[in-house]
Design a protein around this nucleic acid. Sequence first.
DNA 1: TCTGGGGTCCTAGGACCC
DNA 2: TCTGGGGTCCTAGGACCC
Length: 425
Amino acid sequence: MRIALIDANNFYVSCERLFRPELEGRPVVVLSNNDGCAVARSNEAKALGIQMGQPYFQWQELARKHQVVVLSSNYALYADLSNRFMEVLAQFSPVQEVYSIDESFLDLTGIAIDPLAMGRVLRERVRRWVGLPVCVGMGPSKTLAKLCNHFAKKRPEYDGVCDWESLSAVEQHRLLAETPVSALWGIGRRLGNRLEAMAVRTVAEFRAQDPGAIREHFGVTVARTQAELHGTSCLSLVEIQPPKQQIVSSRSFGRPVRSKASLREALTLYTTRAAEKLRREGQLAALVQVFVRTNPFRNQDPQYGRSVSIALRQATDDTGQLLAGALRGLDEIYREGFAYAKAGIMLSELRPRSLQCTDLFGSDRDRERREQLMGTLDAINRRYGKGTLGLDVAGLQSPRDWTMRRGNKSPSYTTCWAELPIVKA
DNA sequence: TCTGGGGTCCTAGGACCC
DNA sequence: TCTGGGGTCCTAGGACCC
């Protein structure tokens, strides 16, 4: 078994640099929604000490001093480049798992080429065809492929490609002994702390633990991780994404929201998005959950947060019916006098549309007409852009002062005609 | 003043059944 | 005084991922 994990370097930053090559060599940070936290950092920005997930206001001064280029996130651009990246990788193996927006596993078992040579070809191909820098890790299990990818990124001597089985036993052990256990895929901060409390600090020490004891104290997931480190593949590649079990749409507000009218408006937008996703997935939802909460970081302010589940009479993908449920939920949980910072909805108890039962209390003709309406809505929004047409059950009236802040977004270079980059001859 | 969003899986415990 | 055992389903909470 030979599994490769190909991962783009500082993905969002690399996407931005593709259209602004002058950012090469400079510290660049991409921010989360609402320009809240750092979610991608160039190597130069990492070297300045800006942490992943660190709130912008905490390093704003530092950024100014070192002329860091700070950008809002541009998901349309990243999603488009991600698709191109994945298509290029697909040419190297019939078995691919797209693991996240910037990572993919490939099964390279039985491919006769020298793995390191193969890794270098992969890197070069993505670099030339898509323009993104990537690193390649390979090993007999997903966990070892992930770990080797980590080495390929952190250790310049590997030049971006690291294969577990091409390493000598001495080298393997040295790497494991130099790597903290929390660098492992599946070992986060909590488990890392618990392991450390047992004097298990490095991957080498973790691998040497008694498997029975690991299973007993940490459960099957951690036991599998340990087995994978020994080269026993426990996790197979997921080639076809199983249908989603829940669909979430939520946002923090650009500024605190007090009125119910604004919350209704925000939830109308979130429900519209979630319903679109649901229809794209070909699923129906039977349960709508709504939540609102104040800002937990402002603990001097009165805090409130609640969620409620609304069971629908029948599973549906109709924006109107889902929205009616969501707004009924809001009526239940809204309390006056709080400064709300975030709201959202979750659709769950999903099932394929093909299993829809007929409604005892509604006519099929009504249903057909609603389905046509939703289909038309989706088609128009696909063609003319998100949000061109929507339902207004909430009665949109208040000024939309809650929408998110995105002060520094780059143009949608590849997904919007009006924002195509123009190259001057 | 300013702190993201969207997911999955596992486990423990209670309810319930025969 | 003695108070079964095994199984399933559901839910809440915890942990992880990017």
